[in-house]
Amino acid sequence: MLWFLLLHIVALIIWCASLLYLPAFIAGIHTEEIQIVEPRNQYGSVARFVFTHIATPAALVAIISGTLVFLFNRTIEVWLIAKLTLVTGLVVGHALAGLLLLHTQDRNTKPVRQWCWMLSGVLCVLMVAIIWVVLAKPMAEVLS
């Protein structure tokens, strides 16, 4: 069980780091000052590689290993339901990052920088809230 917990934490760190990287990278593509030149083939972009080969597999490993930890512990508590709700928000943010990436690769001229900033802010709040819920769990048990 400890190995699944370790795998869950490592995968979660990789997933969160890539989710913080993607909106910044996408916003960087749309700046007027610096133009990032990417290959002509839309399937060869760096941002798409990070999303499909790093962020998504890390998300799947984090969710599967977290589910295994949950099944082995057999705990159903309020903090766990709150954490799962916040993780659902993180999954929605992951999907929104993918939509921003698709919007960027269509070479649409509409600005997406403000959407990238908003997504980054929401993802940061979700990540801090997840950490707070997980670390505050022992205090909730002591107070009960």
Rank of each mutant, 00 (worst) to 15 (best):
F4D: 11
L5A: 13
V10P: 01
A11E: 11
A11R: 05
I13Y: 03
W15D: 05
C16V: 13
S18I: 03
S18T: 14
L19V: 02
L19T: 01
L19K: 02
Y21H: 06
P23C: 09
A24S: 09
F25S: 12
I29R: 11
H30P: 03
H30W: 02
H30C: 07
I34E: 10
Q35F: 11
I36A: 13
I36R: 13
I36S: 07
E38S: 13
E38F: 02
P39F: 08
N41P: 04
G44Y: 06
G44V: 07
V46I: 11
F49I: 04
V50S: 10
V50T: 13
V50G: 08
F51S: 04
T52D: 15
A55W: 01
T56Y: 04
P57S: 11
A58R: 01
L60S: 08
L60W: 10
L60D: 01
V61D: 11
A62Q: 04
I63Q: 07
I63W: 11
I63S: 12
S65H: 04
T67N: 08
T67D: 03
V69C: 12
F70G: 03
F70A: 15
R74T: 02
T75I: 14
T75P: 00
I76S: 11
E77N: 15
V78H: 06
V78W: 08
L80W: 01
L80Q: 09
L80R: 09
I81H: 06
A82S: 09
T85C: 09
T88G: 15
G89T: 01
L90D: 00
V92H: 06
A95V: 05
L96E: 13
A97Q: 06
A97V: 01
L99Q: 14
L100M: 12
L102K: 15
D106L: 13
T109K: 11
K110C: 05
K110T: 14
V112L: 14
W115A: 12
W115S: 14
C116L: 07
W117H: 08
M118P: 00
L119N: 06
V122L: 12
V122P: 01
C124V: 12
V125M: 09
L126K: 00
M127V: 14
M127D: 09
V128G: 14
A129M: 13
I130K: 04
I130W: 00
I131H: 05
V133K: 02
V134K: 03
L135C: 07
L135K: 12
K137I: 04
M139F: 12
A140H: 07
E141A: 12
V142H: 08
V142S: 10
V142K: 12
L143P: 00
